[in-house]
């Protein structure tokens, strides 16, 4: 179980980190005010500082209001549900990088329908493959928009 307090702290730390990244990235260029107005780094630098400052503000508010923030952010059941959604999605992206978007889409739809929707395997697999084929026909054939492809498409001779 995660309470709201920890979630707030973690997010504020993360945004402060992003702000700091912008500040560091901006230092590579001038951050001053030259003859012709602000130098290229000035804008990202001050924006980064602003994000860091506001994140610090969030941290401070969170800590001073600690007692009010003990409410549940994510209970066990919700965490399981979120994980059961996020993990297949991450797998989808990984497979898309390796085998192409079409194969990944077919596998992903099949998996989610079978495991979470409790459809029969044959129905799920047919839907998954069907969806991939429809996407292929519309995007590649219809609109000539190429998607990420993998070894299967190469073996089938599709470009």
């Amino acid at each position: 179980m995660i309470n709201r307090f920890s979630a707030e702290i973690a997010t504020a730390t993360l945004t402060a980190g992003l702000g700091l990244t912008a500040v560091i990235g901006a230092l590579e260029f001038g951050i001053g005010w030259g003859d012709a107005g602000p130098e290229p780094g000035a804008f990202p630098f001050y924006i980064g500082l602003l994000v860091v400052a506001a994140s610090a503000g969030n941290l401070f508010q969170t800590i001073t209001h600690r007692h009010g923030l003990q409410s549940v952010f994510l209970d066990r059941e919700q965490a399981v549900r979120v994980a059961s959604f996020l993990i297949p999605m991450v797998a989808f992206v990984v497979i898309a990088r390796l085998l192409g978007l079409y194969v990944a889409a077919a596998l992903y739809l099949t998996f989610v329908m079978r495991v979470q929707g409790k459809y029969r395997l044959i129905t799920s697999a047919a839907s998954g493959i069907g969806a991939a084929v429809v996407f292929y026909l519309v995007l590649e054939v219809g609109f000539q928009v190429p998607l990420l492809k993998g070894p299967l498409e190469a073996a089938l001779g599709l470009y």
Binding site: T15, A22, G25, F29, I47, V51, S55
Partner: peptide, 23 residues
């Protein structure tokens, strides 16, 4: 925070005015 992050994301890439890459 939200607005600042938006500005920072927008600044990534080629800068028209200086002709250089940023962030």
């Amino acid at each position: 925070v939200s607005m600042g992050l938006g500005f920072a994301f927008a600044a990534v890439g080629m800068d028209t005015v200086s002709g250089g890459l940023r962030l």
